[in-house]
């Protein structure tokens, strides 16, 4: 069950021996079908992917090597080539842009680790607690999924209201209900902005972790729990040795997905702070956005995008290697 999930991407990217043999057998059986049918079937998808994903990606890489500033927007073909100039500016940590990129990278990494870690813990705890039937289980499951169903901007804009200094719920609660502080803090500017963006992102992400872990737990056969129960294992031991053990492959995929999605999260900081966020919450994607569309330096923006993409490719590649080793040892 779980192995299938992990194997799928690996198999499609690089067909292994067994898949190829199975493929051959099928080819002979399916050869009666017209040879061109599958190509016609995927043609629309291929065209759309080319137009919206593949070509723009190649253009984006090319753009990172030219000095595409506001002077060349309408006449982009005449923009001068600058070689690795944009990368040199982005990675020159002595100038202000490079320094900002490093700071932004650090903020994004911290943001991602916190959001992924806490969302995962929330998601799996809720799934564990909802494993067995009890009154209100169905209702709770629905309630927990609402943030996932809500359009991103509606949820985030509500949080923005809650974080307002003078009329938000958070300060009302901290100052007038709990009396923790007399001085209402600002949440959307300065250092607290980082806390705010992390909280909102967790609110949005954890339902997905909940959904995936819940589905994973449904796949664990009841016999295992029953057998362990007869052998005298209490519920905590069953959770530790059966549920969490069986969940490992799904958790690995879930953590990777959450990491990739959170690292390139754009909606949360953009709706909370607008195109120019406070330094503490200056996440990479918004940084790239403002370099490109506020300062109109597309070349630099593209170079930063390519760096961001390379980082994610390295993470995903490292994950795949680690996952393969773990599976071989297991």
């Amino acid at each position: 069950m779980a192995a299938a999930l992990v194997e799928r991407p690996a198999r499609t990217v690089a067909p292994g021996g067994s898949a190829r043999n199975r493929g051959k057998r099928r080819v002979s059986r399916w050869l009666v079908w017209n040879k061109w049918t599958p190509y016609l079937l995927i043609l629309p998808a291929v065209l759309m992917e080319l137009l919206i994903h593949v070509i723009p990606m190649l253009v984006g890489m090319w753009m990172s090597f030219i000095g595409l500033t506001q002077f060349f927007i309408t006449n982009w073909a005449t923009a001068p080539g600058v070689g690795f100039g944009n990368y040199r500016i982005a990675l020159n940590f002595n100038n202000s842009l490079g320094e900002k990129l490093v700071q932004s990278f650090g903020a994004t990494l911290g943001f991602t680790l916190l959001v992924v870690g806490i969302s995962f813990i929330f998601g799996i705890s809720a799934s564990l607690m909802l494993q067995h039937n009890f009154r209100g289980r169905g209702l709770l499951r629905t309630v927990f999924l609402i943030p996932y169903a809500l359009p991103a901007y509606a949820g985030i804009i509500t949080w923005k209201f809650m974080f307002q200094r003078d009329n938000g719920l958070i300060n009302e609660f901290l100052v007038n209900t709990l009396h923790i502080t007399d001085d209402a803090p600002f949440w959307l500017i300065g250092g607290n902005a980082f806390v705010a963006v992390v909280i909102v992102a967790i609110w949005q992400q954890w339902p997905f972790a909940f959904l995936m872990t819940m589905a994973g737990m449904q796949g664990i056969p009841d016999d295992l729990h029953e057998a362990a129960s007869i052998d005298g294992a209490n519920i905590w031991q069953r959770i530790r040795y059966i549920t969490l053990g069986m969940m490992r492959p799904i958790n690995a995929v879930l953590l990777l997905l959450l990491f990739l999605w959170t690292f390139r999260e754009f909606n949360t900081p953009f709706v909370l702070f607008g195109p120019v966020p406070p330094d503490s919450a200056n996440l990479l994607t918004v940084n790239i956005y403002s370099s490109s569309f506020i300062q109109w330096n597309f070349g630099l923006g593209s170079a930063m995008s390519v760096l961001l993409m390379l980082f994610l490719v390295v993470i995903a590649g490292g994950w795949a290697l680690w996952n393969r080793r773990v599976n071989r040892n297991a």
Binding site: R264, S292, S302, S305, M309
Partner: peptide, 26 residues
């Protein structure tokens, strides 16, 4: 088939901003 699935899945990894700039120009 493998190439197609691979390319389709790998696009999931790339940040939207990376497509936004070129798409705008295209």
């Amino acid at each position: 088939r493998g190439t197609f699935s691979g390319v389709v899945l790998s696009t999931q990894m790339f940040p939207g901003v990376l497509f936004l700039l070129p798409l705008f120009i295209i």
